[in-house]
Structure formats: structure tokens, C-alpha cells
Design a protein around this nucleic acid. Structure first.
Lengths: 236, 236
DNA sequence: TATTTGTAAGATGTCAGACATCTAACATTT
DNA sequence: AAATGTTAGATGTCTGACATCTTACAAATA
């Protein structure tokens, strides 16, 4: 991982202070000079940090007036919103909401893909299911997760919708770690294999409703897995 | 509208050149010095422009090596992707894909809202339907569109999912203009009123499947409207 | 008095030049 | 052939200055 530049550090710290509630939405953040003094960096460094936050619509910079915090629903960065949402008492709620979002996109993409996926991609899907089965047999957790993610990626591309892919990309990153966690359990792996098999067969039939339903069942299972996993972590 | 700063201009022009294919994904953009010479601005201005594009994951800046263009599916800015997608031969395809995306989010949000919406919000929904009816009667296009958007906003909030709202916000902006265009036709307005009425009633029944289905029908109608509108524009 | 205008403070926008540090390629030495 | 040194070019950061915009307040005006 690349060492963070000063700009990144300043942006992170400022975002932390915003998320901590020090600068509520609508209020202004300290001026560039004040921040450069506080963080012991030059004003240019502060400005570049501000620019990154402005590009994510977290801040609004207004010349001559100051720099202001935007309301959370205007933020364009899923990760930043996730950080903000996880800050409160219930990290669990944020995780569940993420799955809900993923469910919308994946079921939608699967429905679209049913009418657009190629025979070659169908074959690839079955290949990944086989890979999951093999990884399950040999206790290869990284291999299992990799095939799982690749499976969903194929469907996403097959939906032929650029915007869905764009919106899903940050989700992909955020969920990757959690996926490895939940996939640790062998019975969860077995459930997942069955669902993926059903999804591949549904897509092969080119039945949009059936494909959507199969993916929906998979998402429901994922949500249930997460809930029990989170519950378990809480009791522990 | 605020006059654009030099930073914004440089960022826009650079993005334009990227979208035009001058710098394909994976390739490097000209160095900061070269760009500052070409655009006749200082290096700091170029750097700030780069930072905004980097924050949107359009560029990856690597110290000592250069600055590189990310593949389109890693871009975090819906608007930028929209610009890139609209560049090609078919602006229509991009518009349709946007509706597809909106359909996923809105039907998903509506399904969630069914189990979470308050009685007060139900009343507000009916109020907006009445407002749409009234605006329709008095040929008040802006009023009609405003009530329409507000209606969907209520459902979005009622879904109680922060991430859906975040992802939907840029869509909201992008679709706003088109909405005014399609809503010009009186028969389309009538269709919309009927659909909104059905959605409000479905939500009132707290039936998730029914609510989703009602919203889905509305989205399907919107897609059909768009298609005929686009077709009409093409023949003209 | 009420309105307009002028002035100044504070904020962001931009510039110039300099030095530091990282990367990659090439030349040199072993 | 491999390890090492050198160098060019790229981004990272700093300093200090001036420009321009917004706002508030004071002063001049009708």
C-alpha cells in the first residue's frame, strides 16, 4: 500500500473532524491559513486536500466566503458516507443498508443480464461455480472468495449497463473484506454454491424474472448470514 | 451560476480530452509542467485540477512516474461517466441505461419503504398526487415536475437507507432536465398521475411486493415514454 | 432618516520559483 | 552477468506574494 501523502493525511483528518461532528453540515470549516497552521503544512497542501473533499461533494468552497460542509445526502463518496454512518452506535445498521443496496443493484443487473448474456459468459459462470466447489473441497478460502467475486462480476458486465458497474465498484471494495469474513464458515459456503448454481441456470434459461428471483434469494441469504454473523460478533 | 475557476476549466478541458480518447485508459496524461504551459496557468492550478479528477478516480497520480487514466468502470463520478457514454454514437443508449439504473434504485427503495414509511408520509404522498393533478389541470408544468420529484424524494427518504439516497442524488440532477422535457406531453402526465396514485395506495397497504410492482410499472412507463420521445427526436 | 457609497478585513484564487523525493532507465563498476 | 552509481523527469511540498470576491461597517449623500 502506498504511503499516504500529506495531502491525503490532511484530507483524512479533516474528514474525521467533520464526521465527528465538529463541523456540522451547513457550517464552515476553519480557513486555509488556520488549517495550515494546525496541521503544520503549507497552505497549498491544505488547498489540495480541500479540493479532494470538494470533488467528493463533501465540502463546498465559496470564494471570499469560506468553505462549508455539505449535508450527508449530497456526498458523492460511498466510502465517506460509510465512515460517517459507521461512526454512530450501530455499525450493524450501516452494514445491513449496504447489503440492501447491493441487493437492488445485483438483482437489477441480473434481470437485465438474462436477456443479454452470451453463451460464452454462461460457460464462464458455470466454470466459477465449479471453482467454488473445488475451493470448498480443498478449504481454499481465498480461492473461494475470488471465484465468488468473479462470478458476480461477469453478471455485472453482462448487464451491459455502464452506470451500474460504476455505482457498484465502490461497493465491491467495501464489501470485499466482509465477504472473506462471512465465507469462513463451511455451511455458508455450501449455501452460496447452491445459490450460484441456481443463478447460473436461471440465466442460462434467459428468463429475466427467474434470474432476478434467483439472485434475490442469494442476496436474502447473504443478508441473513450477515445478520447472524453480526449478532454472533455482538454476543462475543 | 458561479463562474468557473481556472481550476475547474483546466479539469474540464482535461476530462474532455480524456473522453475524446486522446488519453486512453492506462495511458499517462501530459506532465504538470507541460499542461501548465499548454493551458497557460501555473503548475499549482494544474495540480489542483488533477486532484479533483483523482478524487473522482478518473486519474491515478503516481509520484515519480506520472499521472494515468483509470478505466471507465473505476470512475466514481456518474456525471463524468455520463459525459463519456454520451460521447459515442448513441446518446439514446446512455439515457436508457440511466433509466434502468433508476429503476433498480427506485423499485428497491419503494420495496423497503413499504415496511418503514410513516402514516404522515403516506399523507404527504397523497398530497403530492393531488398537487400533480392540480398542476395538470392548470397546465402548470414546473409545478407538475416539482410535485413529481418531491413524491419520489419522500419514498427515497422513507426507505431509510442512506446509501441509496447518496447514489440517487447525482441521478436526480442528471434526470431533472429530461423529466421536464418528457412531462411536457399531457397524456404522459395523465399516465404518471395514475401510476403515482397506485404507488401511494400500494405503500399505504404496506405490501412490499405490491409497492415494488407499482413502482416498477411506473418505471416501465417512464422508459417507454423516453423511448418514444427519443425516437421522435431522432426522426425529427 | 433612509439610502447609497466607500473602505477595510478576511476569505479563496492564482502565480512564481525553489527544493525534496521518488521512479525508471542508463552507464559504470565489480 | 550482476550489483551499483548516476541522471533525467516526474510528482510532493514549501514560501511568499498579489488578485479578487464577499461581507460588514462607516461615511457621505439625498
Amino acid at each position: 500500500m502506498a504511503r499516504k501523502s500529506l495531502v491525503g493525511v490532511v484530507a483524512d483528518e479533516l474528514l474525521d473532524r467533520i464526521i465527528a461532528g465538529e463541523f456540522p453540515p451547513g457550517s464552515s470549516v476553519p480557513g486555509e491559513l488556520e488549517l495550515s497552521a494546525k496541521h503544520e503544512v503549507s497552505r497549498m497542501t491544505v488547498r489540495e486536500a480541500m479540493k479532494t473533499l470538494e470533488a467528493q461533494r463533501i465540502l463546498s468552497v465559496e470564494r471570499g466566503r469560506g468553505t462549508f460542509v455539505n449535508p450527508l445526502n449530497r456526498w458523492a463518496s460511498l466510502e465517506a458516507v460509510l465512515r460517517a454512518a459507521s461512526e454512530g452506535v450501530n455499525d450493524a445498521s450501516a452494514a445491513i443498508q449496504l447489503i440492501e443496496l447491493r441487493r437492488m443493484l445485483e438483482t437489477g443487473a441480473c434481470e437485465l443480464a438474462a436477456g443479454r448474456i452470451s453463451d460464452a459468459d454462461i460457460g464462464i459462470l458455470h466454470g466459477y461455480v465449479a471453482a467454488m466447489r473445488k475451493a470448498h473441497g480443498s478449504d481454499d478460502l481465498p480461492g473461494f472468495v475470488e471465484a465468488d467475486l468473479a462470478f458476480h462480476d461477469v453478471i455485472l458486465r453482462a448487464s451491459e449497463n455502464v452506470f451500474v458497474a460504476v455505482l457498484f465498484e465502490p461497493l465491491h471494495r467495501v464489501l470485499e473484506k466482509r465477504r472473506t469474513e462471512t465465507s469462513k464458515f463451511r455451511d455458508i459456503q455450501e449455501h452460496a454454491i447452491g445459490h450460484h448454481q441456481a443463478i447460473a441456470e436461471a440465466l442460462e434459461s434467459r428468463d429475466a424474472a427467474r434470474s432476478r428471483s434467483a439472485m434475490d434469494a442469494h442476496m436474502q441469504q447473504t443478508l441473513d448470514d450477515l445478520k447472524s454473523y453480526v449478532l454472533e460478533a455482538k454476543t462475543a
